[in-house]
């Protein structure tokens, strides 16, 4: 009887991002080009958002997401999940810097720890950094708009952002598989299997996101970027200026 993939307890089997070979070269190359364009947009956006005080926070978020991604948690029999971190990063430092932070994590993982294929870097950056940051940001902002910025609302919004972002990322993998998957299994089978397990992983993502954003919000609410809406801030400045004049 062949012994396949024996997982010895206590021996850390690395989080596996998309390896080389899952998705064919053309689709991987297109994804690489899209990822580079996305990162360029993020650099442009982050430069507008960051200053000498907020830049270290973005650096911290990158380090933190890297570390948390190492902590695989069990989600079902014989299956684990780990933080993706885009939602968390976007809420704390904004969608541009947030997506950039997670992109850096994926680059370091691929180049230093052989986690995720080099030809699949674009795919992994799109799914786990760019997409989760955009989706997480959108969900968080929606919740804040509807429920306000009380502590429970911020924590609930953070959970929702993480919870939604993960299955959406898995759907993007399914799309990539449909376009360029080298496996012979049907797209519909992959779709059902991927979304099923990633809804469960999303719960863990939501919890870690809520716990982390919650902790920062309780300590220094001013540091949670996602709570401070640009228009609201502009209005406040106008009001303050008018009042002071």
């Amino acid at each position: 009887m062949p012994i396949a993939a024996v997982h010895i307890p206590g021996v850390h089997v690395p989080a596996m991002h998309i390896p080389d070979g899952f998705i064919n070269a053309p689709v991987s190359a297109i994804a690489g080009a899209i990822a580079i364009a996305g990162i360029a947009v993020c650099i442009w956006g982050a430069r507008r958002q960051l200053d000498e005080k907020t830049a270290p926070l973005a650096g911290l978020v990158a380090v933190f997401v890297f570390a948390m991604q190492m902590l695989n948690f069990p989600v079902a029999a014989g299956t684990s999940g780990h933080l993706l971190g885009g939602a968390l990063a976007a809420i704390l430092v904004g969608p541009y810097a947030g997506a950039l932070a997670v992109s850096v994590v994926i680059l370091v993982q691929g180049l230093l720890f052989a986690d995720g294929g080099l030809s699949a870097l674009g795919l992994n950056i799109i799914n786990m950094a760019l997409l989760t940051a955009v989706v997480g940001w959108a969900v968080f902002r929606l919740v804040i708009r509807l429920a306000g910025t009380s502590r429970p609302a911020v924590i609930a919004g953070s959970f929702a952002a993480g919870f939604v972002a993960v299955p959406v990322a898995s759907l993007m993998f399914v799309l990539e598989y449909a376009l360029g998957g080298t496996g012979t299994i049907s797209v519909s089978t992959v779709l059902v299997a991927m979304t099923g397990v990633h809804v469960l992983i999303g719960i863990g993502e939501g919890l870690i996101t809520a716990l982390t954003v919650g902790a920062v919000y309780l300590t220094r609410p001013d540091l949670v970027y996602g709570v401070h809406d640009r228009r609201a801030r502009t209005l406040e400045i106008r009001t303050a200026t008018t009042a002071g004049a």
């Binding site: 997982h7 089997v13 991002h17 899952f22 902590l71 695989n72 014989g78 898995s170 991927m194």
Partner: peptide, 13 residues
């Protein structure tokens, strides 16, 4: 940390 395969790896297996 859990040493079980992650979501993607499990589906692929």
């Amino acid at each position: 940390a859990s040493s079980a395969p992650d979501g993607l790896e499990k589906v692929a297996e």
